[in-house]
Design a protein around this nucleic acid. Sequence first.
DNA 1: GCCGAGAATTGAACGTGTTCAAGTCCCAGG
DNA 2: CCTGGGACTTGAACACGTTCAATTCTCGGC
Lengths: 227, 227
Amino acid sequence: MAAPATSKGEATRAAIFGAALELFRTHGYEATTMRAIAERAGVSLGSSYHYFPSKEHLILALYHHLHVLHREACAPVLARERSLAARLRGVLRAIVMTCEPFHEVSGSPFSTVADPRSPLNPFGAESAAMRREVIGLYAEVVRGSDAKLPAEVAAELPRLLWLYQMGVLYFWIMDASPGRLQTLELIDETADLIVRLVGLANLPLLRQSRRRALALVRAIAGNAPDN
Amino acid sequence: MAAPATSKGEATRAAIFGAALELFRTHGYEATTMRAIAERAGVSLGSSYHYFPSKEHLILALYHHLHVLHREACAPVLARERSLAARLRGVLRAIVMTCEPFHEVSGSPFSTVADPRSPLNPFGAESAAMRREVIGLYAEVVRGSDAKLPAEVAAELPRLLWLYQMGVLYFWIMDASPGRLQTLELIDETADLIVRLVGLANLPLLRQSRRRALALVRAIAGNAPDN
DNA sequence: GCCGAGAATTGAACGTGTTCAAGTCCCAGG
DNA sequence: CCTGGGACTTGAACACGTTCAATTCTCGGC
């Protein structure tokens, strides 16, 4: 995508990304023009396109930046908590907090989420690396918990929790409540509900449903451009 | 949005929408320019904007067009089937079939789905009328079924099924499998799973979860710009 | 038959993201 | 010190969605 070969190129790339970060945060995604980013970074319009093939690729870089912050924010919770519900709650609260400075801005870029051809599409090839990282984070959430899970459930759960996170973030984007309290309530309630449902899947009554659900998840995930 | 006052205006509006429909289907959303639509409709560029405030509003009109087709496609199934699972399956198969001609095209327009300010946002004010209609369709799905549902579940289920439909459509957009078979499998399996889960919600073991889940849904729906 | 008000229509002009051919800079190798 | 090539940089140019002041059309009321 953009691999500067010299240290000067590295600096230019960082300047462009920094300018974009600042302008996105203060003015929003759409109101920020590529010309304004270039000007603030002290480079020409064409130079920006040398490092980022499109405006959307700047958002991709922002995603990665936020993911790094999110991992750091998660670390204490994952080290401390052992119950699956608490770990889930902590990780989801952390992502909402991490993204908060970009809330007003998140609508437009997150919107391209549904376009299969967009680099921002979470299921696409260009976001595969990030997707693996996030799923890995949820694997850690599951692995470090004291929940008693059948192996086949534990194997598919991280991917499902990644989907769950996307759902929560989508809700968060729409959330206009003061202090984003609705999202926090949603997290508390659904994290709990998920853990209960996963626990119930052990009941004989639900065995068949569990088997079929797992088969479905595996069939679908098998066709995805994941690893 | 666009209310022609004369019959001539009505005809112009129809010509523009028809041209857009044809071009979207054959060339895709992004590849279709407003200039091309205007030319094919035999009007000037400015005229298009007199009837449709933006290119996205043409998609809004397309949504409505598809919804009408969907209702017609659903009618036989809803008249025939009584089991909730069969009704759900039928309605979801119908929408996938109805939208099929626009599959390659659906990515880009559906993508703006996440932008709170976009007229295409399913939770927004500009799509409130359509949202109510679709939720109404699912109310009919529930009402005409022989499923034994507690009143409070039956009250919230249509809204949740509308969400479910959006999830299925999102999957369908991404579905590259031949004949869209994966989506059909997803529909069959999840429709069944949903009905089982709803049925299980009557168990004493799940009473509390049900109560809390319903409270959450009500709290969230109360803040939405629905009616 | 004429008028006028409102609907319908026009196309030039604006700002945007993006492209690209041309230019400049840097430095390793001679 | 020169030179060549590759990284880097530039800004004009393009096509697009959108806006708007100006113009034309339509038709009911006199």
